[in-house]
């Protein structure tokens, strides 16, 4: 792994160099959204989708609060709490990688993204063990409305974690500040959704 800028293929000569991207990022006008506008559209969309899902979850809970409480007791609360620590720590590493990319430290950004991705894998292992335990008890999506929502919401979130891990690997390979910033923003969105989802599904 070298800190030297990668040469671009002839077909990509219009793509800005790392130096140009760094300069552009440093000159980001204060008061405007940092990073890619489309990523912010995605972040807003994801908050809206998960927010609507959680509102539906809480609304359906009104029809059977006792059943929801009993179903919730079967979830792995401790594992989910640990997963919060796992994701915020992974997000911290991704944020540090963004700073390293801006400083042109390609080797450092990759060394930061590798554990960030591995922590994503830890999240999925803990989530998978919870699912396996529920399935072993004969619990599925149709057992109770609580599980329909909890599997849907946490499963959709887990799919985002998996996608984020792939994205972080790709932007780590590319190594440009803009790519790393965009990949890290997606990862922070996954983090943000989890801190909203966790208390509603696991704690309340």
């Amino acid at each position: 792994m070298s800190d030297a800028p990668r040469s671009l293929p002839a077909s990509s000569q219009t793509v800005p160099t790392r130096e140009e991207e760094t300069k552009s990022h440093d000159e980001h006008p204060p008061g405007q959204l940092p990073g890619e506008l489309l990523m912010w559209v995605l972040i807003l969309s994801e908050i809206a989708v998960f927010g609507a899902g959680l509102l539906a979850f809480l609304s359906v809970r009104l029809t059977d609060p006792q059943g929801f409480a009993e179903a919730q007791a079967h979830l792995h609360r401790t594992g989910a709490a640990a997963n919060t620590i796992v994701l915020v720590t992974s997000g911290w590493l991704a944020a540090l990688a963004t700073r390293a990319a801006e400083a042109g430290q390609t080797r450092r950004l990759r060394l930061l993204l590798v554990p960030a991705i591995l922590l994503g894998a830890v999240f999925l292992v803990l989530k998978g063990s919870e699912y396996a335990d529920l399935f072993a008890q004969g619990i599925g999506t149709e057992t109770h409305a609580f599980y329909t929502f909890s599997f849907l919401l946490t499963g959709f979130h887990a799919a985002h974690v998996l996608a984020g891990m792939v994205l972080l690997a790709v932007v780590g390979w590319l190594g440009t500040p803009k790519a790393v910033e965009t990949g890290a923003a997606f990862w922070h969105m996954v983090d943000l959704v989890w801190v909203l989802l966790f208390p509603v599904v696991y704690l309340l």
Binding site: Q32, P34, H188, L192
Partner: peptide, 12 residues
């Protein structure tokens, strides 16, 4: 997360 990880501190 919004302020420090996603950098919205520069866009109050």
């Amino acid at each position: 997360i919004l302020r420090d990880y996603l950098g919205l501190a520069v866009a109050p």
